[in-house]
Computed example of a mutant assay.
Amino acid sequence: MAASSSLDWKSRADKLLQRWESLQEKGRGDVVLLKVSTTLQSLNDIISKDIQNCDNSSCLHLYSQAILDITFFEENQLVDEEFPGDDSLQKVRELIQMLLEPENLLEECKLHKQDMVLDVDVQECLRWRRGALLYMYCHTVGERESWLLRDQRTFHQCLEDGVYYLLKMLHTRNPIHLNDGVSVQDVNTATLLAKGIFSDIHVLALMYCGEMCSWAVMYCTEVVQTSEIGPNSETRNKILNFREVGENVLETYVGVCEGPLSGQGWNTDNAKKILQYLKKDRI
């Protein structure tokens, strides 16, 4: 069997199509869902031309884009409805598993020595979306429960996963320095690139990450970390020091917002308050 066929793109495309069809009742005419339809059609066109030897990288790119758009639509519904019902966390986990699938496929191909490439922009977006979704869930649930959490362990796991995904997103690209043969006329831009800050989303990720770390320190004090924490194999065995990580990302956030991004509307008041809290009573 050919390498492309072993990935069964037809089956994967069909599953996404079924999910897209199930969303039509609520989102008929939605721009994002219309975009998904076009993307899936392009994916099927590639598959139908040569199902045995279709281009893995092209298929992965279209497959990833369809996943990003479908999950974006569903995520917006959850956020707008403030994660209603007892099954909202299960829905969040389901969306995260979908957002993990493209990178899992990439790793699978590497193990079998098959050629497949995932654009760095897409990879970065997949990681950002996983972290941001967990941030929104934790923020919404925390506020709703007035931070008197009924299940600290589950909340702690969500925070750990979210921080881990945001850190992965922030390290998707390597920092760029002037001595790397890159010429940048603007000093502020050079400073940002050297710190690995390539867009506003990177700045926002620093703040989200810092806030999630502070919530873990403030509200999950009774949770004892172990070497296996939850079902997510990607974050298993990756124990985080929330206080240390929070300090690092928030110091970077304050530094860039009051430095090269000064005057561009980024507020550092909350970040400084959190930093003060994280640094006090350090063990």
Rank of each mutant, 00 (worst) to 15 (best):
Y63G: 04
V203S: 12
A13V: 14
L126F: 05
L159Q: 12
L170G: 00
D119P: 01
Q152F: 02
E143Q: 14
T71S: 10
A216C: 12
S233D: 11
E82R: 14
R19W: 15
E103V: 08
D161H: 04
K272Q: 15
A3E: 12
L111E: 14
S5R: 09
G210M: 00
G246I: 06
L206Q: 08
Y164I: 06
S262A: 15
D121T: 03
N76H: 06
T226R: 08
D30E: 04
G162N: 09
E74F: 06
Y164S: 14
D121A: 05
P84D: 08
L206Y: 02
D115S: 12
Y137R: 14
E124G: 08
R243I: 14
P175M: 15
S214G: 10
Q185Y: 08
I176M: 14
V31A: 13
D269M: 01
I283H: 13
I197L: 03
L7P: 05
D269G: 02
Q123R: 12
V182L: 13
I67A: 00
W215K: 10
I67W: 03
Q77Y: 06
I229F: 05
L149N: 04
W215I: 06
M207Q: 13
E108A: 08
N76Q: 09
S42Q: 10
G255N: 13
Q157H: 10
L192P: 01
N267P: 09
E25N: 12
L126V: 03
L40W: 02
L278H: 02
Q24W: 15
D69E: 11
V256A: 14
E222I: 05
L149V: 07
E101I: 11
N76A: 13
V249K: 01
N179Q: 11
K49T: 15
R93L: 15
L111V: 07
Q225I: 01
M218E: 10
E94I: 03
K110G: 07
Y208H: 10
D119M: 06
S227G: 05
E228F: 06
A13S: 14
A205F: 02
K168V: 01
V223R: 06
L68I: 07
L78W: 02
K35W: 07
R282H: 10
D30P: 02
W215M: 13
E94Y: 04
N232A: 08
P102H: 10
T39Y: 11
T172M: 07
N179T: 01
C54T: 13
A3F: 09
V31D: 12
S88L: 14
T268A: 05
S6Q: 12
E124V: 08
E94L: 08
M136Y: 01
D87V: 04
E82W: 04
I47V: 11
G246C: 07
E228Y: 03
L178H: 10
W9R: 11
V249L: 11
N188P: 00
Q225N: 13
H156D: 08
I67L: 13
V184N: 11
R153I: 02
L278Y: 09
E251H: 07
S4Q: 02
F242D: 04
E247T: 15
R19D: 00
